[in-house]
Simulated assay, not measured.
Amino acid sequence: MQLVDTHCHLDFDELTRDREGVLARAKSVGVARMITICTEIEKFPQVAAIADSVDEVFCSVGTHPNHAQDEREFSAQEIAALALHPKCVAIGEAGLDYHYNRADKDLAHRVLRAHIEAARLSGLPLVIHSRDADSDMAGILEQEYACAPFKALLHCFTSGRELAQRALALGLYISFSGVVTFKSAPDLRETAALVPLDRILIETDAPFLAPVPHRGKTNEPAYVADTLRVLAEVKGVTPEALAEITTANALKIFDKMPALAA
């Protein structure tokens, strides 16, 4: 069984303290690819260096909405140029976060639109962060897609069914994290049940949101296998089947990553 953790943060302190152990445990459960996600463009060199040092690790480039006020606004052209790095397979994570609301909305919207344009320019998928911003997120995605298409996925999906349906109508993918395993998330599991198998992805968002039975601990890529098991139950398929499906989906949308060995 080969798995892809489509979203983790290997540059965060919680995981750098034992990176060799984290990578070894991921390998032991079949995690064949990890995408370490950039949250501040100014720190992209450190993120890219991790990807360069480990064959199984790839990366993205982008500004998280909660860091939009912390660094200068990068143009779409600048972001796309950085994405030419050989191991960079995605743009982002970028998006809207009205839960913490750390960035002015006008700034947050501009930064998101710049990343959408960077996704178009680079041909790489946009990794979208959306929290408590369903209506605005759906509206921006639909407006931008009407101008010109782009590839994208909603990562760590915890939003409502309407955003999922509107995103799927645009051809986007939806990625589920350990939150889908929480006892408090029956509505999210109902939404996951409606997502077509050819649009579903799995992730950890490590070091955050460890799935059951690791909840409360530091999350790590190996735990994507626990999310997979719960999501397989929700979808009515075996873990082995869902592993094959989600891995194929990951390689399809993140098509700059090389194919896996048999």
Rank of each mutant, 00 (worst) to 15 (best):
V61K: 04
L121M: 12
V54M: 07
G123T: 10
S75Q: 07
A259Y: 06
A90Q: 05
V89M: 09
P186H: 09
A259C: 11
D187W: 00
I202E: 00
R110T: 13
R161Q: 14
V47R: 02
A26M: 04
R110N: 09
I50S: 04
A225K: 11
A119C: 08
K252N: 13
R229A: 13
S175F: 11
E56I: 12
Q69A: 15
H7E: 03
P125L: 10
L168V: 11
G95L: 02
Y223G: 00
S28W: 02
G178T: 05
L197G: 14
C38Y: 00
E240L: 11
A261W: 00
T204E: 02
Q69R: 10
Y223D: 04
H85E: 07
D198F: 09
L124Q: 14
T6E: 02
F44T: 01
D18H: 06
A232W: 03
P45T: 12
L197D: 09
R19F: 03
V47S: 04
D226R: 00
L153R: 05
T246H: 08
K256F: 14
E144A: 14
L201G: 02
G30D: 05
A83E: 02
E78F: 10
S60Q: 04
E233V: 10
G123C: 11
A167T: 13
L188E: 03
A138W: 01
R19T: 13
V111I: 15
A48V: 08
T63F: 06
R189Q: 14
K27F: 01
L188G: 09
I202C: 04
I174D: 02
N249K: 11
L168M: 13
G171P: 09
G62V: 05
T63V: 15
D106E: 15
M257A: 10
A148L: 11
R25T: 10
A76R: 00
